[in-house]
Simulated scan of single mutants.
Amino acid sequence: TLGVRDLARSTVFFESLGWRRSVKDAPGVSFFQCGSIAFGLFPLDELAKDAGVSVKGSGFEGFSIAYNARSKAEVDEVLAEVQSLGAEVVKQAEDVFWGGYSGYFRDLDGHLWEVAWNPGFEIDADGAVKLPD
């Protein structure tokens, strides 16, 4: 679950990427089915309150979330799309040392996302990533 400043705006942002919103009758939260995981958006203040922590502070939190693409072209398309929706591309896509292709963006609330194509990862028709054995 990501804490977001504007739930409605962030929900539209992810829906605009083609993500299917699930459980639409859950007030105050948005859920998306992402392959075999559930991805949630919740108001930042409420998430901090629920966790018993302060909302104050910002910066790099020591993690990124990966969006796995099926091709290099899809990586470029996703980065262009998120930028048009208000995200900040912080690193343009490029070939990387591990044999793939990736770039990074910060979403509307500053969460860091990697958009990556990994030739060793299979992605099924539903978007689930199958890691190599």
Rank of each mutant, 00 (worst) to 15 (best):
T1R: 15
L2M: 10
G3S: 03
V4E: 07
V4H: 10
R5D: 15
D6R: 02
D6C: 01
D6W: 04
L7K: 05
R9V: 02
S10P: 10
S10M: 03
T11S: 10
F13V: 00
E15G: 06
S16W: 05
S16T: 06
G18N: 01
W19G: 04
W19D: 02
R20L: 15
R20A: 14
V23Q: 15
K24A: 15
K24C: 13
A26Q: 14
G28R: 09
V29R: 15
S30R: 06
S30F: 04
S30P: 13
F31S: 10
F32H: 08
Q33H: 08
C34P: 08
S36L: 03
I37F: 11
I37A: 15
I37C: 12
F42R: 11
F42T: 02
F42M: 12
P43H: 00
P43D: 02
P43Q: 00
L44W: 11
L44M: 14
D45V: 00
E46W: 03
L47S: 04
L47Q: 07
L47I: 00
L47K: 06
D50K: 13
G52H: 03
G52A: 05
V53N: 03
S54R: 09
S54V: 04
K56D: 14
G59C: 06
G59D: 02
F60N: 13
E61P: 14
S64K: 09
S64H: 11
I65A: 01
I65P: 07
A66V: 13
A66I: 14
A66T: 14
Y67R: 10
S71H: 11
S71W: 15
K72L: 03
A73D: 12
E74K: 09
V75E: 09
V75I: 09
V75S: 04
D76W: 13
E77G: 06
V78F: 08
V78C: 05
L79R: 09
L79V: 09
L79A: 06
L79E: 08
A80S: 11
E81I: 13
V82P: 10
Q83L: 11
Q83D: 14
L85F: 01
A87Y: 00
V89R: 07
V89T: 07
Q92F: 12
E94Y: 10
V96F: 06
V96H: 08
V96L: 04
F97Y: 14
W98P: 00
W98M: 01
G100F: 08
Y101N: 03
S102R: 15
S102V: 13
G103K: 09
G103F: 04
G103C: 07
Y104L: 11
Y104M: 11
F105C: 07
R106Q: 10
R106M: 11
D107C: 08
D107V: 00
D109Q: 07
D109G: 08
D109I: 01
G110L: 04
G110M: 03
G110I: 00
G110T: 00
W113Y: 04
E114W: 04
E114V: 09
V115C: 05
V115S: 06
A116S: 12
N118R: 11
N118V: 05
F121S: 06
E122N: 12
E122Q: 14
I123T: 04
D124E: 10
A125W: 11
G127V: 02
V129F: 03
K130S: 15
L131D: 13
L131T: 14
